[in-house]
Structures are given as C-alpha cells and as structure tokens.
Design a protein around this nucleic acid. Structure first.
Length: 282
DNA sequence: CGCCCTGTTGGGGA
DNA sequence: ATCCCCAACAGGGC
C-alpha cells in the first residue's frame, strides 16, 4: 500500500524516534525478508550501531547506520511498521530493539516486504542506480527531464509512470491521480505526449504526491501509521477506486480498465482515449 | 463451504 | 525494450 507519500509519512514519524539511537537487537522471523542473507547476518551487521539518519529513496526506507552500514527496507504491498506494538500482533516478521528501550515491529501479512544490507556509500549508489530514476519531489524533476524520459518510450503513459527506473516512487494510485490531473489517458503512448501534456504531467505528479504527503498517507484506506492508527479520510482520490462515480470535473462516470496489468481508473471525457494509429503502410 | 478473482510492488524470464 | 507471471495472503462476490 505504501507509495512515495506513505513511505515519506512513515519516515517523518519514525525519524525523530530512531535517529541518534543505537540498535540493540534485530530478530528476523521470516527468512524471506532478507534473502539471500540470513537474519543473523543482518543482525550482526546492524547491532550496536547508531542510526545516523533515516532517509528515503523512492519507496525505500533507508537506515543510515554508523560506518556506512545501510539497511534498506521496502514495504511492498502490505508491509507496516509499528512502534512499541501491542503483544499479540499477527504476521510479525522483524523486531527491532532500540537501546532506549523502545521497539519497532515490521508486520507483513503477504511477506513481499524486503530488508537488504548494503555496505558503503558507493554500494548504496549502485543499488539505487540500477533500480530508481529521478526523485519527483526534487528540483531535478524538470519539464526538460520528463520530456527526455518520454522520448522514445512507446509504452502507455501509465506504464511509463509506474517504471521506477524512470521516476522513483509513483505507484498505481498516484499514477491514476496524476494522469487524471494532467488530463492524459493512461493508454496514450508516452512518446506521443505533447510538450504541454508533459509539462502538465510533471506538475500533476508533484501535486498528487504532495497531496498524499500532506494527508499523511491517510488517503489509502489500508494505511496504518507507526502507532497503528488508521487514516481518517478514505476516498480522497479524484478517480482512483471510484468506478461508476461521477468525475469531479465533468460528472461523467469514472471507468475502470486494466492498463499495464493493473486496475486503472479514468474519466474518458476529461482524458480522451488515444486514436488508434493506422498500421504502417507496406 | 469452496472456488475464483483482485490487489498498494518489484524482479526475472520470455 | 516490453510484456507477463509470480511471490503469499486476505477479502469479497458468487
């Protein structure tokens, strides 16, 4: 459930509670979590080290420990972090114990979440360079940059946004929201977007992600914050998961379709369907 | 009750 | 480059 805004929300809540603290223990009860490393190897590497900073890159949470030891956590679909959790919590996978007496529990029913150990700043750069593109909320995410990314990309705009190697952190929900705000149909090939459309898309990505951060990730109905509190407002989205409901702009019914293998919500009045290109003459 | 489908992600293989 | 399937589980519809 966490996309960039949700991971950022977790980071902001968690950072003041762990930064400057020493990790006293790490117990991994699910071997899948840190495969191919063993839980004991991760524990040995992080134990006794201080958390210098808790950062984020795309949808990854980055624990920067002493001696350039990095623990990189990804929550995938259903991962959650709980600070000082109650005793009986199902699907507990990893327990962090801090030297100040507090603890943190990684909970993940579906077990897609991962924790990886990276040694050295250079290895960290390599790790992200192979998987993540630009940070959409950083100044480098310019109209020119987005135009360069779209050039030569024949995939539908939705697939273009979901590819983490181009833009880091946009997931299925915020992709729908950004495309709606930019009035772009998810099926339109990225390399056939006009310059004004790409400029609008850049702004729409930023606005959509920032709206999610400003809502503390509470827009996703499943989202639990560090203290297990549920988001108060569900359904803050403009079109996502609003099949059949009226478009907030024009009132026509929001349609659901499958694009890039994911459920996709669109107002086909505001986001006109691309014309099928005539097959090349031969 | 059981079967089938869907899902907030990313990696690997075709 | 691009598409499809899969990981493992819960919940909803039929």
């Amino acid at each position: 459930m966490p996309e960039l805004p949700e991971v950022e929300t977790i980071r902001r809540q968690l950072a003041p509670r762990v930064q400057g603290r020493v990790l006293e223990a790490l117990e991994v009860s699910d071997p899948r979590w840190c495969w191919p490393l063993a839980g004991t190897e991760i524990a040995a590497a992080v134990t006794g080290r201080r958390v210098q900073r808790l950062g984020r890159r795309g949808k990854y949470l980055v624990w920067e420990l002493d001696d350039e030891v990095f623990l990189i956590i990804h929550l995938r679909m259903t991962g959650t972090l709980l600070y000082d959790p109650p005793e009986a919590v199902g699907h507990a996978r990893v327990r962090f114990t801090l030297a100040d007496g507090h603890s943190l529990l990684f909970v993940d029913p579906r077990r897609f979440g991962t924790g990886q150990l990276v040694l050295g700043g250079e290895a960290l750069d390599t790790f992200f360079a192979g998987r993540l593109g630009i940070e959409p909320l950083e100044p480098g995410f310019t109209p020119a940059h987005l135009r360069a990314l779209a050039r030569g990309c024949r995939s539908p705009a939705k697939a273009f946004l979901l590819d983490q190697r181009r833009i880091a952190g946009v997931g299925n929900i915020y992709a729908d929201e950004a495309l709606f705000r930019a009035r772009i149909h998810p099926l339109r090939p990225a390399n056939r977007l006009t310059s004004p459309q790409l400029d609008a898309l850049r702004d729409a990505v930023i606005v959509s992600l920032q709206a999610g951060i400003d809502a503390n990730g509470a827009t996703i109905d499943d989202f639990r914050d560090l203290d297990g509190a549920r988001g108060s407002f569900q359904n803050e989205f403009l079109v996502h998961r609003r099949e059949g409901e009226p478009c907030p702009v024009c009132g026509s019914a929001v349609r659901k379709m499958v694009v890039a293998g994911r459920g996709t919500y669109v107002c086909e009045t505001c986001q006109p369907r691309p014309r099928l290109r005539r097959p090349a003459a031969r």
